[in-house]
Simulated scan of single mutants.
Amino acid sequence: MDFSLTDEQRMLADTLERLIADRVAPDQRRAMLEAPANERSALWRTFAELGLLHLPFAEEVGGLGGDGTDLMLIMRALGRGLVPDPYLAGLVLPGDLLARLGDAGQQARWLAPLLEGEHQLALAWQERDARYDAHGIVTTARRDEDGWRLNGGKQLVLNATSAAALLVTARHDDGRLGLFVVPADATGLTRRDYRTIDDQTASDMTLDAVSLSDDACLSRDAAQTLDATLALGRAALCAEAVGAMEVACEQTLDYLKERRQFGKPLSSFQSLQHRMVDMHLHLEQARSMAILAATSLDCPAAERDYRLAAAKAYCGEAARFVAEQAIQLHGGMGMTDECHVSHYAKHLVMFDHYLGDSDHHLEHVSDHLVDVM
């Protein structure tokens, strides 16, 4: 099968790589991380001007009709630059749900400004007892006069601190899974904000009798759509991890060539050469799995979820391996904040936990192995 890129896709990849290399040097990245939560970065505004915020969405909702491969190229470039802007958490995941489920009024209110870069959103779906199970939701949604009342809690809500609104999953009385748009300043919504080890902004939230209007409900039966959106997110994460692994391998090899011991560069020692080969083998296999993930999004649901679980499980294991080897081959300095590879390593370790870790997805692969054969 031919996986070569079109001329337009190669131009997209080259443009993004140059742009990010120019805008997200280590000192610039630190300034972006320390900026106020409600302030859009100059890079995000540039993304809006170039149409990169529109690209992953269908033309029918104001997008540019990009496919899984286009998203893979964007996320790989973001991973290479370790870009802190929440392209996946603040744009792709909530935007995809709005594009699939929102009516014209809801899309005009929330999706159109999102694509123009005027605000960001967040998806709140994970809960303490449900872990990575999108169907184990216990947050409740009950009718309240002419609206809704939500009660429950969410964990690890990425980008909640910068979001104008949150898309929240909640269980109806009849057992179906609903999806609601909750303004960030809604009464009864409280957050505990923190940063993950790779500097992502995240929040744990409590919803205590949050009152919403009737049109805040995007769907009363969103389970299948949520599965499709999370599959898209997992494909995007695999591509982002590949980009980060590429740079971790490059920086480690450069270090081994520069660092000398016993009068020779470290790269001349055969044992270290073998470890670099192992890192590249994991990288190349992860790249293949990321391509599989990006090209499987239009498959039937069962086959799509099986392929995405396999890809996410392998990329998670490969990301941890590359991170650990990069740190060990750099020695003690690899753990310091001044050594940029340490930031890639932390991001690669955390990648495995976003949208389901390797154990979770391997269990899915094991449970459904017979079904897809």
Rank of each mutant, 00 (worst) to 15 (best):
L167V: 14
L226E: 05
H172S: 06
W148R: 05
A202Y: 01
Y255T: 12
N151S: 15
V138F: 00
P183G: 09
A228D: 14
G153F: 02
L177V: 10
A141F: 03
R220A: 10
E240M: 09
A202V: 07
D198Y: 03
Y194E: 14
D254N: 14
L212H: 07
T169G: 02
C217R: 11
D215N: 14
V181E: 07
G188N: 08
A184I: 02
A170T: 08
L150S: 13
E240H: 08
S211C: 02
L179Q: 04
T225E: 15
A170H: 02
L237T: 05
V157T: 14
T169M: 06
R171F: 01
L207D: 04
G147V: 12
V182S: 11
T169C: 14
Q251K: 12
T140S: 12
L226V: 15
V157N: 03
R176D: 12
E246W: 00
A165P: 09
N159G: 04
A239S: 15
S211Y: 00
L230Y: 08
D204P: 07
G147K: 08
A186G: 13
V242C: 08
A222G: 10
A248F: 04
G178T: 11
M245Q: 12
P183L: 11
S213Q: 07
R176K: 11
D208M: 02
V247M: 09
G147P: 14
A160F: 02
D199I: 00
E240N: 09
R191M: 10
A231M: 13
E240L: 13
R220G: 14
C249D: 05
A228N: 08
L150E: 10
V138S: 12
A202M: 06
T187K: 13
L177C: 01
M205S: 06
A164H: 06
C238H: 00
G178Y: 03
Q155M: 14
A209W: 00
A235I: 12
D146L: 10
W148T: 09
V182I: 13
